[in-house]
């Protein structure tokens, strides 16, 4: 059981990029703005927006709030945290 728990923690961290999903690209396209404009308005680099959309990078809580406020939605509407329970399988 202990080993199973360790493996679970390890694996959760290992696939961390998959646990937090976001609707940033969808929202951005809905508002009809490009990555450059969004990056400039939020005060981050364009690469950061690209990485966020690809799910390669998870933002800080401050940037997450900035993004949510920018689109006028709740933080949970942009970022979706999915807890994967490996115990069920």
């Amino acid at each position: 059981m202990d080993l199973y728990y360790k493996w679970k923690v390890y694996f959760t961290f290992y696939i961390r990029g998959d646990v937090l999903k976001n609707r940033l690209e969808e929202l951005r396209k809905k508002h009809g703005i490009n990555q450059e404009k969004l990056a400039n308005d939020l005060g981050v680099s364009r690469q950061t927006i690209g990485s966020l959309e690809n799910g390669r990078y998870n933002p800080s809580i401050v940037l997450a709030f900035k993004i949510a406020r920018y689109f006028g939605v709740n933080i949970e509407d942009v970022f979706i945290y999915e807890e994967i329970d490996y115990g069920k399988n």
């Binding site: 400039n40 005060g43 981050v44 680099s45 950061t48 990078y57 800080s60 401050v62 940037l63």
Partner: peptide, 11 residues
């Protein structure tokens, strides 16, 4: 300034 202070770049 943005490139310098960008949180991803800092990380």
């Amino acid at each position: 300034y943005i490139e310098e202070h960008d949180e991803r770049n800092q990380a």
